[in-house]
Computed example of a mutant assay.
Amino acid sequence: MELLVNPTWTHVCEISAIPKLGSRVLSRTTGNVAIFRTESDKVFALLDHCPHKGGALSQGIVHGETVTCPLHAWNIALASGEACAPDVGCARRFPVRVENGAVFVALGEDA
């Protein structure tokens, strides 16, 4: 995970705009970002690209704090972006914060 010393936070949406156990996509020219919401209202952001074959993680099934890629059923941990064993790989993770129902993502310099 990259360490952002002074992150620039981008307002993405209200948390209510992300369905529970679902996602919302932030379109970018450098790669879309999938923002996920768990049943317990935790919010995570990953590059919308499975480390296995590039499937859109935003189209996967969220369960607990993981998402299952729709292409080949790889499970990706939302908190770290790491593929769950026995699979190996990592999707880029982006820091997220929720303030007063608003979701912000630190996208880095390539926002």
Score class of each variant (00 low, 15 high):
Ala34Arg: 06
Glu99Ile: 00
Phe94Cys: 07
Cys13Val: 05
Glu39Arg: 00
Ala77Glu: 09
Pro95Trp: 13
Gly55Phe: 04
Ala45Asp: 12
Leu71Asn: 02
Val103Ser: 14
Pro86Arg: 12
Thr38Asn: 06
Ala111Ile: 10
His72Glu: 08
Phe36Asn: 00
Glu82Pro: 05
Ser58Lys: 03
Asn32Gly: 03
Val12Cys: 03
Arg97Ile: 15
Ala56Tyr: 08
Glu2Ile: 09
Leu26Met: 05
Ile18Cys: 02
Val105Pro: 10
Asp41Cys: 02
Leu26Asp: 00
Val62Glu: 13
Trp9Phe: 13
Gly81Asp: 06
Ile61Ser: 02
Ile18Pro: 14
Phe94Ile: 01
Thr8Leu: 12
Leu47Lys: 04
Asn100Cys: 14
Pro70Ala: 03
Val43Tyr: 09
Ala102Asp: 10
Asn100Phe: 06
Leu107Val: 05
Thr10Ile: 10
Glu2Lys: 09
Ala45Arg: 15
Ser23Glu: 15
Thr29Gly: 14
Ala45Cys: 12
Phe104Thr: 01
Val33Arg: 08
Ser58Asp: 01
Ala77Gln: 12
Asn6Phe: 11
Glu99Thr: 00
Val105Ala: 05
Thr10Met: 07
Leu26Trp: 14
Asp110Arg: 08
Ala73Lys: 11
Ile35Gly: 08
Lys42Cys: 13
Gly60Ser: 01
Leu57Lys: 04
Leu46Pro: 02
Val33Ala: 03
Ala111Gly: 14
Gly64Val: 13
Leu26Thr: 06
Asn75Asp: 08
Pro70Gln: 03
Glu65Gly: 04
Lys20His: 08
His11Asp: 03
Thr68Cys: 10
Val103Tyr: 11
Leu3Ile: 13
Ser58Val: 01
Cys84Trp: 09
Pro86Ala: 09
Ala34Ile: 05
Leu47Arg: 06
Ser16Glu: 12
Cys90Gly: 09
Ala85Val: 03
Asn32Cys: 02
Val5Cys: 03
Arg28Leu: 15
Met1His: 14
Ser16Ile: 05
Asn6Ser: 07
Thr29Pro: 06
Leu26Pro: 03
Asn32Tyr: 02
Pro7Val: 11
His11Tyr: 09
Pro70Lys: 00
Pro19Gln: 09
His63Gln: 06
Glu14Lys: 13
Ser27Leu: 06
Glu2Gly: 11
Val98Met: 00
Leu21Ser: 06
Leu107Ser: 12
Ala85Lys: 10
Asn75Gln: 10
Leu71Pro: 00
Ala77Gly: 02
Glu2Ala: 14
Thr66Tyr: 04
Thr66Gln: 10
Ala17Asn: 07
Phe104Pro: 02
Pro7Glu: 14
His11Ser: 03
Ser23Arg: 09
Arg37Met: 08
Pro19Asp: 07
Val62Asn: 10
Asn75Arg: 12
Val43Trp: 05
Asp87Lys: 07
Gly60Ala: 01
Ser58Ala: 09
Asn6Ala: 13
Pro86Lys: 08
Val103Asp: 12
Val88Leu: 04
Asp110Cys: 05
Met1Asp: 12
Val62Pro: 04
Leu57Pro: 10
Ala56Leu: 03
Glu65His: 11
Val5Arg: 07
Ile76Trp: 03
Ile18Lys: 08
Lys42Arg: 13
Ala102Leu: 11
Val43Ser: 03
His49Ile: 02
